[in-house]
Nucleic acid binder design. Structure first.
Lengths: 229, 229
DNA sequence: CCAAAAGTGTTCTCCATACACCCATGC
DNA sequence: GCATGGGTGTATGGAGAACACTTTTGG
């Protein structure tokens, strides 16, 4: 069946807001653009969608190409398509946000990118295109979603302490949480596996390690339980 | 600045899941396709995005062209871009969902559409493309969002009774709500204007009419209140 | 023994839920 | 006067929020 639509078409790209955790600080991965437009400016990693790949795959591929990273969680965010958002011509971008376990990865600049680096959300440079708008909406989405879906674990090592877990939520939600209430709640959900091991190499009492259990989470959801921080 | 990217491009469309209320029943607006592919099948209203219009505008325009309707609320839902979802070739669709006050509008088939009609969510025909998937995710989004944002009012006449309001939520959430608790809660939010008028033309005690007040809602939000059903 | 973080319970308030009867109106 | 939906209050249980001290470990 031939495609009968031969009008001009917009270009379609994907862009990716990648979040990572640095102790108690939420960071975003940016690349420095090598080419015009906005050469030298910082931007979200991303690029054009190939004709035979899904949008998700395009997002993962571009991220890999430009920063060397694979993400642990990826979710479509929003599609931005204002005429004029790209000075080269009509470009529609499907934005994603991703979470990665920073400790386990090493970043490196790629083909279209001079350099890649992590920025704290409080010290962002001026960004190319409408990427500041995309970044802001990704941050809001993350803040909303992390409270009722167990996605935040993708920012932590597979084994973590309750304090690390709490700090992760505090970093994302940007407000302090009460230690006793937090522990009571998260433990009562029954989605954590308490490991026999403890923290090592700290100059104080070692904390117990925990891991997130997908199996326990599936059980709990099955029985109508709601995850909520 | 010339556009240096001259690879083949996917086609970009918008599709719209339009919800309307029919007494206690949530309905969706579908059109019957005039042309191939899927000629004669029911589908979501939608079509190609023009080069100089925003995505939102494209959604409203297509809706108007194919059904004669203007929507009271429109929100971007998700972008579907599987290669192969359109047999004519790679097509990426930005899906929207819309809410309209059915009582105030009259539908009519348009250019690309043989016919437009409302379907109950429980009696859906087989749909063209991946439109059943889009419809399902729109329904889920609506169920989620209606609980913490006052968007449901866009399905009701500007003046409504508390019973109509409750039935709207019951239709969307697909479960019964307790009358006294519902009234207590919605009134305590302080976002409704109680009008002096009452219902007319009913064969029983006439109910008080209310309207949603944007101003009151803005106040309440400003003071940190959370709308939640 | 000191510094640093781990770990632990109780009280109070508020909100969600469950639940049944009288009232006003049109026919 | 009867059928139909409109309108109202209270009691109970559970969850969220506030809050401070003891324990363990390494240096």
């Amino acid at each position: 069946m031939p495609f009968t639509y031969d009008y001009p078409r917009p270009a379609v790209t994907v862009d990716c807001v990648v979040f990572g955790l640095d102790d108690g600080d939420l960071k975003v991965l940016l690349i420095q653009r090598a080419d015009k437009p906005f050469a030298g400016r910082w931007a979200l990693p991303g690029g054009f969608v190939n004709m035979d790949e899904t949008l998700d795959v395009a997002a993962r591929r571009e991220l890999k190409e430009e920063t060397g990273l694979s993400c642990d969680y990826l979710e479509q965010l929003f599609t931005f398509g204002e005429p004029g958002r790209d000075p080269r011509g009509r470009t529609i971008t499907v934005a994603y946000y991703a979470l990665i376990r920073r400790a386990e990865h090493r970043i490196q600049g790629g083909s279209d990118a001079k350099e890649a680096a992590w920025f704290s959300l409080h010290e962002l440079p001026s960004l190319a295109f409408d990427h500041d708008k995309i970044l802001e909406s990704a941050h809001k989405r993350l803040q909303g979603k992390v409270r009722y879906q167990p996605i935040g674990f993708n920012l932590l090592p597979l084994k973590f302490t309750l304090t690390e877990l709490q700090k992760m939520y505090e970093a994302i939600l940007d407000r302090p949480l009460d230690k006793r209430n937090f522990r009571k709640k998260i433990l009562s959900m029954g989605v954590l596996e308490r490991l026999t091991e403890s923290q090592e190499g700290v100059a104080h009492r070692a904390a117990r390690l925990y891991s997130f259990s997908k199996a326990k989470y599936a059980d709990v959801v099955e029985h109508g339980f709601n995850f909520e921080i």
